[in-house]
Design a protein around this nucleic acid. Structure first.
Lengths: 188, 188
DNA sequence: ACTCTCATGTAATTAGTTACATGATTAC
DNA sequence: GTAATCATGTAACTAATTACATGAGAGT
């Protein structure tokens, strides 16, 4: 369903386009929001045309089909935006690694979270670079803002988690600052 | 692959269990990290047993099979945690709605983001309730911490976005505080 | 006897990924 | 002419959802 909505959204925002154009837009503007390759997009466009959410308005060079959103498509899109509440299906590999972190010993756990932190930082820089490329507000700026905040939050989480991991199992037996009881790990 | 890892993780953390037990644990401890129903879990366990990542150690009442993780299973799990870097496949319906928000007029957009905000707040309360149920640290506490920070960040984002939406298209033509130029929307 | 929860599975469908296949146009 | 990019598709496979199906044991 959501692929359909993403395609309708792109056609609504930037006008008629071919499957190829839409594939490119998934790689650029939509890249941080929804992913889809051409092998998924072409068949979906055909189904959407069969359902009359879009039509082939023109055929360009070498069989290039230019799709245009129909009023049925627009109302489907509008209905999804105003009536549908996403259920945020929790399926995140990062969260899963995070969940399972206590299975590793401290050094490994620290290495894992440090790797994550580096990824979050890279992502943050990438998103910051997208901000106002020509100094004007763009479609997707709220999504971009959300992504930036998310990345920043994740970096902070990683920093704090690394500190916590190091603190709860210090590398040497130095008892000079034992003012805080180490949290005991919970065995199975 | 990740379902497999989640199952290995549960078996590693809390010891031998049946498909039914594991399904229950997906509903409780893992609920905010990875989702799977019994119809996905049973066949996967059979495949994992065929691959010798787990074994049937005991059979309980009414055909209940108790699975135990093998050393192959443990090393597979360990390898995934230490070597595999998740690629955070961006596929979020909430981010998609966010991205498409500018297609709505201001009132509708505000209503949408307010609905999101309510959901984020509910989620935050739900997660906060899971914190230290018996006052002691638990498996999954880093994941829980990440989830809580995420929910809090999302609430803040929603608050700021609602304000921004209202500001860039005020409900009445009051020019008394026009010290700030409204951001011009970018047409298709 | 009946109902509820426990407990395990399969079937059908939809969504998504990876690999295969083909041909047109443009730039060198 | 040849290589790169444009452009569109199909096939095979894996992952996930929804629905169907069945039976055992426990409590009333």
């Amino acid at each position: 369903m959501s692929l359909r909505i993403a395609l309708l959204g792109l056609l609504s925002i930037s006008g008629p386009a071919s499957g190829y154009d839409l594939t490119k837009r998934f790689e650029t503007s939509l890249a941080h929001v929804w992913q889809a390759g051409h092998s998924q997009i072409y068949p979906e466009l055909a189904k959407m045309a069969a359902d009359e959410l879009i039509t082939v308005e023109a055929e360009g060079a070498r069989g290039r089909k230019i799709y245009t959103i129909t009023s049925d498509g627009r109302s489907e899109l509008h209905r999804w935006l105003t009536e549908y509440t996403p259920t945020a299906a929790p399926r995140s590999e990062i969260a899963l690694q995070t969940f399972l972190t206590p299975l590793l010993d401290t050094e490994e756990a620290v290495a894992l979270v440090e790797r994550m932190k580096a990824d979050f930082e890279a992502r943050l820089q990438e998103l910051l670079a997208l901000k106002h490329p020509e100094g004007k507000p763009r479609y997707g700026r709220y999504a971009l803002d959300l992504g930036i905040r998310q990345a920043r939050m994740a970096v902070e989480w990683a920093t704090d988690t690394i500190a916590d991991l190091k603190e709860s199992a210090p590398p040497n037996g130095d008892a000079g600052h034992a003012t805080r009881a180490p949290e005991s790990p919970e065995p199975s």
